[in-house]
Design a binder for these strands. Structure first.
Lengths: 389, 389
DNA sequence: ACGTCAGGGTCAAAGGTCGG
DNA sequence: TCCGACCTTTGACCCTGACG
């Protein structure tokens, strides 16, 4: 026993709990607060005394102090790298069975779903980087967190837009194939999800990639060319898709300080859409969606608790999910844009684009998707992406 | 359970309190007396009976007897180093934080937001009922919870669809006007929200109204006529809007057992869309949206806690919010349907419909909305709804 | 094997609520 | 106003599983 005093209330400590030396009272209080997702509100000035005798007077300030003292619900240090302390971090775990009652063999302990999604994302970003290195002179794109070289960036042409969409589609399929929950689905359902999600997920990706830009009213395409709001209308953006992406998605993402974890979660949630057209096994898709949703909500709550003082993080999961309706609407308009562009012969629509973006009424010829789905991951992707050059 | 009789008044005891076996009454009396430092004085001989029926006759004697029975106001152990007295000692503690639980009056003074929304909804439903009573032979619709009379229901005609949309728009404006958060907005922003939300909110309303139907693949329009999935395609539903409403909204709502509270919350969240076109005061709209979101998430968590065994309620807020992207997409298609129907002269588009559903690019002539917004609630609504007859 | 640490749960006895 | 039936929260104490 190194220390004896509770870092929260100065009572006698009983050891380290959730990352902080604390007493049994503060330990129990913290667990209950996390478990029941309590959101307390201070009735005074947010600076109430939290001492042994007064600790029950204000739960908001007590919880605040727990967090300040280092208590964590998932133990992940908020923004620091910690590859070492991945072992042994404190955490509020899942509820256990009641003591004294019969045990129900519970299944858990598997790797966090959201971490898996981050890995899948990193894989695809590496793929993209290597492709871009070969097709342009830009620095590789490191998972949306690299600083931007404005000097190197150039404005997108109509051709860039078409190529970018094509690239994104190829990467999208690779991404999907790397998700276990996807691979277990029937072939037809795979096609349904790909077709139903392509446009939205491309828009989501473009938006997330663009939050690091500091130049106003501009988005960053998949091949790292830039597309400004006004410029876009000259290259076929009849529906102001670019403007809407910036106003309705990129700026809100910036305000919310959306991070990579949240991005990959939203992407997967969007993708596993059980009510997508022609989906036969809705339950399987729904299960996958809800599994991601559960991880996502948990992480949002954790993040909110680590940032109690910052209102941005309150109701975080809801705020982020509310980006999706706009996203859906914009994606639909993007499809219209592409349809119109094809109608006027402005853009060269290849078969993959036709299959995934222009969702026709007719039951699609599954040839193209079959080919993409059948090929093993990483095999000649570069070749496939560059085939358009 | 050690003893059963209160040592102070012989009432039934509820356990040991402050060091004495006692009832809840004596427990509460002792706490209040100590907390408020009451000094009672006996008006008789200091030997009043303290029994269940007479205990409130003399507070001085009651408190005296509490103390005699062993109640202690301060359990400070005689010495700090008495490791033996680790047993809990009775004490009146300091005042704690408010917990706010018991039904009705809610936390921090102001009425719960979601309750306000339910009231607004009920008001509009009453309005609708009275309108329908005058224009059809159907029983009044009681807030979505009345049983359906299949014999009385009839299939919707194209005319019904147009009328239904018009009715919904009028009620939509009335509903918005009844929300305080709406009335505080600038005139232009009001128009922006109404235009941006009309289609989605009509679809949401139709869907929620339809969950009580037990007949398959059918929705219930605002004037209580029925519209089947197949039948709809014959009356201008080119985009399969009806089918999508059923598959993507109504059925998921049924699976989730969505209730009225959740419906009104989603409606308001959808309505207060800060990124709607032409909105100048995004912050005000966002504040309104997030206020509803907060109430909504809180209620979802409460509902989940009440139904721990039922998996349906896990992540409830997220599951419900995920109805909105589909809803948005469908609403957009409904707009297209209406546009096409007008193009082919199939439907009579009145000015309100033109203004709210067919969001043109041109900055709209604010005449029509101004009129609607200016008129006091409840004034000649019936006349306005029936103007089309 | 066995103690320590840090998760989890329990439930008596504190607390607060609010109609009467 | 105060009372007290009824509810929630607290925290001392105990159980469990991982690790050395």
């Amino acid at each position: 026993m190194v220390e004896e005093i509770c870092h929260i209330c100065n009572d006698k400590a009983t050891g380290k709990h959730y990352g902080a030396i604390s007493c049994d009272g503060c330990k129990g209080f913290f667990r209950r607060s996390i478990r029941k997702r309590y959101h307390y509100q201070c009735r005074f000035e947010q600076n109430c005394d939290v001492t042994r005798n007064k600790r029950n007077a204000c739960r908001a300030c007590r919880l605040q102090k727990c967090i300040k003292a280092g208590m964590k619900s998932n133990g992940k240090p908020s923004s620091l790298f910690s590859t070492i302390s991945l072992l042994q971090f404190p955490a509020i775990q899942n509820e256990r069975d009641a003591i004294g009652k019969r045990k129900k063999t519970s299944v858990n302990g598997k790797q966090d779903l959201i971490e898996q999604l981050v890995e899948a994302e990193n894989l695809c970003q590496q793929l993209r980087s290597s492709v871009i290195r070969n097709t342009s002179s830009l620095a590789p794109y490191d998972c949306g967190k690299v600083k931007w070289n404005y000097e190197d960036a150039r404005a997108a042409t109509l051709d860039d837009i078409g190529k970018s969409i094509h690239q994104q589609l190829v990467l999208f399929i690779e991404w999907a194939k790397s998700l276990p929950q996807f691979t277990f689905l029937a072939q037809l359902d795979k096609a349904a999800l790909l077709k139903g999600g392509a446009a939205s997920i491309i828009v989501l990706g473009v938006a997330y990639r663009s939050i690091i830009l500091t130049v106003e009213n501009t988005i960053c395409l998949a091949n790292d060319t830039l597309l400004g709001k006004e410029h876009a209308t000259q290259v076929g953006d009849i529906n102001c898709v670019v403007g809407r992406i910036i106003d309705e998605i990129v700026n809100p993402m910036r305000r919310l300080n959306m991070d990579l974890y949240e991005y990959v979660a939203l992407k997967a949630i969007l993708f596993f859409n059980p009510v997508v057209r022609d989906c036969t096994d809705q339950d399987a898709v729904e299960t996958a969606r809800y599994a991601v949703l559960r991880s996502f909500q948990k992480r949002c709550v954790d993040k909110a608790l680590e940032n109690m003082e910052d209102d941005t993080f309150d109701c975080r999961s809801g705020k982020l999910l509310l980006l999706l309706p706009s996203l859906q609407a914009i994606a639909q308009q993007l499809v219209e844009d592409v349809q119109l562009a094809r109608l006027f012969g402005l853009v060269n629509v290849d078969s993959l684009m036709e299959e995934l973006i222009l969702n026709d009424m007719k039951p699609s010829d599954p040839q193209i998707l079959q080919t993409s789905l059948a090929s093993p991951v990483n095999t000649s992707i570069k070749a496939e992406v560059e085939v358009e050059d």
